[in-house]
């Protein structure tokens, strides 16, 4: 059985991979029990499975596990360690950007990758990033508002 060594949410992990095609999303969800990462399409289209890999937002459903050797992965579970919401999470709550919540962790992780590197991201950049995700519930209005609110709060 192939073995994967990588760091997840700051903790070094060793995972034995099943033979065949194994994606990062299933390592996180099935092997490590990190079910906050959601799978909505499995083909890189909906963004629900987005995690931060070496500082960049990726769709974990299309990221082969073996490509993650030595990588540093952050999932939604890392953001509220200790029970205090990250400003992006709090902004989603406050702006009413959450309905069913299935798209939420992926969106938050993509905005995390963006705003931690580029706190001055313009509205256009925010829209560009959110546009990589599908949400069937909200009509996106409140998600864009949450992203703006998060940007504002993270500058303080």
């Amino acid at each position: 059985m192939p073995v994967l060594n990588f760091t997840v949410n700051g903790v070094p992990r060793t995972v034995h991979l099943e033979e065949g095609r194994v994606m990062l999303s299933s390592v996180l969800r099935d092997s490590l029990g990190l079910t906050g990462t959601k799978v909505g399409c499995g083909t890189g289209q909906c963004g629900s499975c987005t995690v931060v890999l070496n500082g960049r937002a990726v769709t974990s459903c299309t990221t082969p596990a073996e490509k993650c050797e030595g990588a540093d992965v952050l999932t939604i579970e890392a953001l509220a360690e200790g029970g205090v919401l990250h400003p992006i999470q709090q902004a989603f709550v406050d702006a009413g950007a959450i309905q069913c919540g299935f798209c939420t962790p992926g969106l938050i992780m993509r905005l995390y990758a963006l705003l931690t590197v580029n706190p001055d991201a313009t509205d256009d950049i925010l829209a560009e990033e959110i546009n990589k995700h599908l949400c069937r519930c909200t009509g996106y209005e409140a998600i864009l508002a949450a992203a703006r609110l998060a940007r504002e709060r993270m500058k303080k």
Binding site: I76, I98, T104
Partner: peptide, 23 residues
């Protein structure tokens, strides 16, 4: 009143459980 959703925090942290999350 526009009170915040009672399920929002759990959904923002990934804690909310959906059927695929159950083992």
């Amino acid at each position: 009143k526009s009170v915040p959703r009672v399920d929002a925090v759990k959904k923002a942290t990934g804690e909310a459980c959906f059927v695929a999350d159950i083992t």
